Amino acid sequence: MFLLDRSGPWPAWQQWGSRLAAAVSVAVVLATAPSAQAKENASTTDAASSTVALSALPREAQQTHQLILSGGPFPYAKDGVVFGNRERQLPKKARGFYHEYTVKTPGARNRGARRIVCGGQPPSNPEVCYYTEDHYASFRKIVK
């Protein structure tokens, strides 16, 4: 058992104890928090490992995919804009790599939550496309 000799001024011991407690708290937080690299790898793995066949997508998503390949015309003004990947759900690429397209949602009064995000140049010949039905919370890679 380790005993501290508290001889001397008590305020000095309180200050030492407070510093030790703060250092231990910081060490615990750092040890238990996942690294940014681990988070990025996990999100990249999630998006890359979950796939969906193009034929299994809703009819509206298949139609949007066909419009992407043909270069439009697109029904929404925001279709084809750069997708910033701020959610970091997709593999990290240079800005401008990804473009997003609206998938019509029957009965929705606005654009809805469904999107296809494709990456590569030119946009009509994408390297990869992803489908989200929950407004970027999750993605599935589209396979043909």
Score class of each variant (00 low, 15 high):
Glu87Asp: 13
Val143Glu: 11
Asp79Ser: 15
Pro122His: 14
Asn85Ala: 09
Asn110Asp: 15
Gln15Glu: 08
Leu3His: 14
Asp5His: 12
Ala108Ile: 06
Lys93Asp: 06
Leu20Ser: 03
Ile68His: 04
Val81Phe: 13
Ile68Pro: 06
Ser25Asn: 05
Arg114Ile: 00
Pro122Ala: 15
Val81Glu: 15
Val29Tyr: 05
Val52Cys: 06
Asp134Lys: 04
Ala48Ser: 15
Leu67Asp: 12
Ala22Trp: 01
Ala12Val: 11
Asp46Leu: 13
Tyr136Cys: 04
Gly80Glu: 10
Ser50Met: 01
Arg140Lys: 15
Pro58Phe: 02
Ala108Pro: 09
Gly84Ile: 01
Pro11Gly: 01
Glu60Trp: 09
Gly84Gln: 14
Ala137Trp: 02
Pro58Glu: 02
Ala137Phe: 04
Met1Asn: 09
Ser25Cys: 05
Pro75Thr: 04
His99Pro: 01
Val143Asn: 04
Leu20Ile: 12
Arg88Ile: 00
Ala36Asn: 07
Gly80Val: 05
Gln62Asn: 07
Ile116Ser: 14
Ser35Cys: 02
His135Gly: 02
Ala31Glu: 00
Gly119Leu: 03
Ala31Ser: 11
Ala36Gln: 14
Leu30Met: 13
Ser18His: 04
Leu3Ala: 14
Met1His: 12
Gln121Cys: 00
Lys92Phe: 01
Ala53Pro: 08
Val52Asn: 09
Ser70Phe: 01
Thr64Cys: 06
Ala42Leu: 10
Leu20Met: 12
Ala53Trp: 05
Thr102Trp: 06
Ala33Asp: 00
Pro34Ile: 11
Pro11Ala: 01
Thr51Ala: 04
Gly84Tyr: 09
Gln62Tyr: 09
Ala27His: 02
Ser25Val: 01
Thr32Pro: 00
Arg140His: 07
Pro34Ser: 12
Asn125Leu: 04
Leu3Met: 10
Pro75Gly: 11
Asn85Asp: 12
Ile116Pro: 13
Pro122Trp: 13
Val24Met: 10
Ala31Leu: 07
Phe2Leu: 14
Thr45Gln: 14
Ser70Arg: 15
Asp5Tyr: 07
Ala137Gly: 02
Ser18Phe: 00
